[in-house]
Write a protein that binds this DNA or RNA. Structure first.
Lengths: 158, 158
DNA sequence: GCCAGTTAGTTGACTATGTCAAGTAACTGT
DNA sequence: ACAGTTACTTGACATAGTCAACTAACTGGC
């Protein structure tokens, strides 16, 4: 039996267990999130456009690590549906500046509220003390794993 | 600075932030995990077969929430590649009992080791105390969110 | 100004993932 | 025995994602 100090392999097993657990949790969120008529891919792009005014397709491709070809088609679809507006850049004729139409903003806002509501449901059975515990635990994980990230490459970013 | 008691909306924001963070983390793991020649879908099925002797396709479909049609094709592919063995059940002619070939077991074991190695890399920059903190935080989250699951309908599944 | 190299985006072709509906064969309860 | 269910397969389709080839436009060096 393991004593008081967890070994590295215990830690590995625990992390992998958590990965499985949380992947399933997020998967559930994702599924329910998708009882909007919009796909995850579309929403990610829409968020990106909302959060960065006048962003270009290549910016999005870099940011979300999407293939340019795939993104090009996704954007065409979003433009065709009247969700995204594509305006030629005045300073560089190769680029298009992307923005959300009013309709697009409505969609993103609704998705936002929906996601917040689902998260609220998830927190509902917890007491205030438990909620605080949960948030603390999440912060701890982000800090510890973020440390790894900082210590390798990737410091700058946004 | 935030006061002593986090509000519900603070908690919601924190959870959503963590979801984004962890989705990205898992995404990275997933990508690197995939520099094996096997897809995530294939591996999930292979793990399921390894962990449950004589499992049937419909068991897997239930467990992984996969569409029966999709699963049927995935399994055919795995059988064609000599990874999975499909033997007719002796007690029910509709079922096939699934198992891993030697080759299949080799693949799963290799993937296992690869995943453990990646997790070890992720833990490497942490001290023993930090590792313990991390594991505690993960346990806390699983417990608190698992509680939600138990308290809602979901006990008997469907 | 010219041209080589790069960047932004598009298009075609293809594979993988996933869903739905319809069908066949085999089992189960009454 | 037979209606209903279960296990699985097949066809048709939509979405997701990758790769290679291409056009148009910009950039730096000369």
């Amino acid at each position: 039996m393991p004593q008081s100090r967890p070994s590295l392999s215990d830690a590995i097993a625990a992390v992998r267990g958590f990965n499985r657990f949380y992947t399933r949790e997020v998967g559930l969120l994702r599924k329910t999130f998708l009882d909007t008529p919009w796909t995850l891919g579309e929403m990610r792009i829409l968020y990106e456009i909302r959060n960065h005014a006048k962003i270009s397709a290549s910016d999005i491709a870099r940011e979300l690590e999407l293939d340019a070809a795939y993104l090009s088609r996704l954007l065409s679809r979003l433009v065709a549906k009247g969700i995204v507006i594509r305006t030629p850049s005045e300073t560089d004729a190769r680029l298009h500046e992307l923005s959300l139409s009013d309709y697009g903003q409505t969609i993103v806002n609704a998705a936002d509220e929906r996601q917040a509501a689902l998260t609220a449901d998830m927190l509902a059975p917890l007491s205030a003390a438990e909620r605080r515990q949960l948030v603390d635990a999440m912060t701890t994980i982000e800090t510890l794993l973020g440390k790894r990230r900082a210590s390798t490459s990737e410091a700058g970013k946004q």
